[in-house]
Nucleic acid binder design. Structure first.
Length: 124
DNA sequence: CAATTGACTTGAT
DNA sequence: TATCAAGCCAATT
């Protein structure tokens, strides 16, 4: 076996595991995947999400500053905010929220299990 | 194989 | 606190 998932696929697998009402910033996703400075790569991966990848809660991935960040698509940014608010996340007057309060902090073993299972499903 | 592109981050101003 | 410039990375061309 050892069907290695591409970085993008690993990103999708991890994002899929983010619990309802919790969030993860781009940099942390990269870090959990073993790439400490791959934040931009994570953004690139999510920007390439298509209708086929539905099921990936992309709105739970935010900036390290506690704000939504979708360039060139104000509508999508608004949609992201609405989805987050629907899950209980409260924004302040500056369109920001306390990241530490909603940040998902999975254990490393947990992350590995998630990736391993995703890789397995893909194989099957 | 080099250049380009982005839903990022951080440190300096 | 708000801006700006430089790093950093995977995927695409």
């Amino acid at each position: 076996m050892n069907t290695r998932m591409s970085f993008n696929e690993q990103v999708y697998a991890l994002v899929r595991a983010i619990p309802h009402g919790r969030v993860l910033n781009y940099g942390r996703v990269a870090m959990l995947l073993g790439v400490p400075h791959g934040a931009r790569a994570v953004g690139w991966a999510l920007s390439n999400l298509t209708a086929n990848d539905r099921g990936v809660p992309w709105w739970r991935v935010v900036s390290a500053q506690g704000r939504v960040s979708i360039k060139g698509a104000p509508e999508s940014a608004f949609e992201q905010r609405q989805r987050l608010e629907a899950e209980g996340i409260v924004f302040d007057a500056n369109d920001r929220f306390n990241l530490d309060r909603y940040l998902w902090t999975p254990d490393l073993p947990e992350v590995e299990a998630i990736l391993a299972q995703a890789a397995g499903d893909q194989h099957a």
